[in-house]
Design a protein around this nucleic acid. Sequence first.
RNA 1: GGCCGCGUAGUUCAACUGGAUAGAAUAUCAGAUUUCGGCUCUGAGGGUUGGAGGUUCGAACCCUCUCGCGGUCACCA
Length: 591
Amino acid sequence: MSIQAKLTDAVKEAFKAQYDVRIENVEFQATRKEFDGDITIVVFAFLRHVKGNPIKIGEDLGTYLKENVSEVTDFNVVKGFLNLVISESHYLDTFNTINAIANYGTVTPDPDQKADMVEYSSPNTNKPLHLGHIRNNLLGYSVAEIMAASGKKVFKTQIINDRGIHICKSMLAWKLFGNGETPESTGLKGDKLVGNYYVAFDKAYKAEIKVLMEAGKTEDEAKKQAPLLLEAQAMLLKWEAGDEEVVTLWKTMNQWVYDGFEVTYKELGVDFDKNYYESETYLLGKDIVADGLKKGIFFKKEDNSVWIDLTADGLDEKIVLRGDGTAVYMTQDIGTAIERFKDFDLNELVYTVGNEQDYHFKVLFLILKKLGFEWSENMYHLSYGMVDLPSGKMKSREGTVVDADDLMIEMTNTARTISQDLGKLEGYSEEEKEALYKVIGLGALKYYILKVDPKRRIMFNPEESVDFNGNTGPFIQYTYARIQSILRKATFDYTATITGINLHAKEIHLIKELEQFPGVIQNAAANHSPALIANYTYDLVKAYNSFYQTVPILGCENLEEKIFRTQLSAKIAATIKSGFKLLGIAVPERM
RNA sequence: GGCCGCGUAGUUCAACUGGAUAGAAUAUCAGAUUUCGGCUCUGAGGGUUGGAGGUUCGAACCCUCUCGCGGUCACCA
């Protein structure tokens, strides 16, 4: 039983005995360092139930707790805050308990529970992944890991937008200008090759528009009448009709892209349990629309298009099916959501999608609710802000995107430069060194992106790149590596359980930090926020560095204390590693 | 213009979801370490939490107004 649970019970009893009132919950916080004590109870919160002077109530409560809870050795009241001093032996006991737990902080999922699904990445197949996708991937992957660590059964998934006019544009450009090029013949990654043709299409298309406009067409007319666009549209129709030549080309070029994406995902360290393909799901949802039409949830306009009126909910009218009977984005999302809940018996469905689609998901969830699906309450849009560059927004057509593969290489290069100056890598092979540079470079990138609250925009400056000092991934990795260095030198047996020693203030502080880890994971899962894990890990590392600087570990004279400090160091390292694993960041043994 | 989100030290981020004197990092300055890795540690300066009201024991957080930035209001996804 945790100390907080114990105190909560005692507080309830105290109020029952002294005032005959029932208290539902007790508000705790860590005592601020300028006051004496370890745990603080906020007395103000009780004023709703008990009238009186908060200082008097606090003192009565403190007296009661000191008498009835063995761990409470003393207390003081400042304004409405009751500060409790907890015995040192409690912290030593706490550490011994924590130290015995193998996967401390994580909850093993019950395999029989309903599953949660996290969708992320979901790229188009006409261009390579860029910095924006990196934020998406890191967030989605990390949130899935955190949810799993909090005890949920989680599936990671992506839906690949492999169908539509965009891929036809690349296909057409390849057919016209490609001369049979392949990833093999050019040595280019498949996604890069296809992306080049998308750009080539756009260039040729723009040239056609210019010619048409010079011939007197308006811009709108020119855009709609350009022969290349008409041809791409014709290609899409052929694809939908199952034309063999078009479908074969489509399959070939998509496969190039998938192969390319696979490389990027692997480098980035993300994966998926299941892929969905839009080409297989784009017809879903039409039945539901027909159904909703019958029920009167949707209505038809003169041109046969189907809409939903959400003005009563403060939103607009939204189209759910085109006049020609074909699906729009919303139709598909309605259909796939229903299918997923059916197929997987889902509890929660998380969509990792940028905040420019906030409105779309608001509408989607509302429509599903109106259609009577109770699980629509369990859908969550993990919305995140854009990644801006100093030059402004990233725009693929203007060539201002930061390519995902290039960025990872750049980060690795920076790590290499720094490590060659400062690293302690004697005896490492070149391969081991390269692997290490990747760990550090990617650690810097991932931490930089994940430590920020998802909702906020990120300004990414590729010139300054990413810091390696201060609140950064490498700083935390360094602390881990240094602990490993100590453990390598600790040639004595440090497995014994230590009792009865006096603890240094820094040690108590570290144990308090350790104590919080399980709660932080639960909180991060509930809030879908890797930033909470990042901040926690950083606090832990800072507390450790302060400890490290203040007290000797291996040089400690007293054998029991030396053993304890070594154990404590090992557990801190293990916790850093677990925390970073939830962020998808590896930790090095040396660096 | 309607709706949504965001405004916190020079800069990058926190603040346990309404709690104590708003904390870190970075940069600047001043110190520490005969020692287990000097990518470490300790300290100083730096704030009207965009602004103005309100709610209450208590507001960066909730409400109203206002200013700034971004997104969105497509039969694209």
